[in-house]
């Protein structure tokens, strides 16, 4: 199956670096890593993982152009003028620009980024995937075996490894999908 191109922000990538099933990400995507994101990584284990995946072609380096950085700065400014919207910082803004210009799926947990593409009509075509949706897709496609005795297990493993808590409502919806689609429950 052909994989989609995606681009990851820093928080997303360092969370996945800690996750026991981190290589499953590449069942779904070839992931671009902006240079600005690469600079944020320091630990030996994360650097080793990234380097090996750059070598295998599962990750690819994304070098931001001046024009892309300029557009990203505009996104940052616009997000700060949107009421009740968390500000978008430069790394996520770069990813949004790549999402709009190149059609890459944006991999981020950033609430500001999610809200921005929801509110900004000229960015409404940008697709954002969070880890929750990716873990769900991995199970639906059977790259990650669900546990029908404990359908929340795969999500909980991610939360334990990364100390990242999913919003309860979204998590319950995902677990309900696992029950319905994979475990034969109505």
């Amino acid at each position: 199956m052909s994989r989609s191109f995606a681009i990851a922000d820093t928080c997303f990538l360092i969370d996945w670096a800690r996750y026991r099933g981190r290589d499953l990400l590449f069942k779904l995507y070839i992931v671009y890593v902006p240079e600005s994101v690469l600079r944020e990584v320091k630990s030996e284990s994360t650097i080793a993982w990234i380097a090996s995946k750059l070598a295998s072609g599962d990750l690819a380096l994304f070098t931001e152009t001046e024009s892309e950085v300029e557009e990203a700065r505009s996104i940052m400014e616009r997000s700060r003028r949107m009421p009740n919207t968390p500000a978008v910082d430069l790394p996520e803004a770069i990813c949004i620009v790549a999402g709009r210009r190149r059609g890459y799926v944006v991999l981020t947990e950033n609430r500001g980024a999610l809200k921005f593409v929801e509110l900004a009509e000229d960015y409404s075509g940008v697709i954002i995937h969070r880890s929750l949706e990716i873990l769900l897709q991995l199970q639906l496609k059977r790259y990650l075996e669900p546990d029908c005795g404990d359908p929340a297990l795969r999500f909980r493993e991610y939360e334990e490894d990364t100390k990242h808590l999913f919003p309860r409502k979204d998590l319950l919806n995902a677990v309900a999908t696992i029950r319905r689609e994979l475990c034969g429950e109505t």
């Binding site: 820093t10 360092i14 944020e40 100390k163």
Partner: peptide, 9 residues
């Protein structure tokens, strides 16, 4: 860096 801060978090 963000990764270092995440470890502190």
């Amino acid at each position: 860096t963000i990764e270092e801060f995440n470890e502190l978090r």
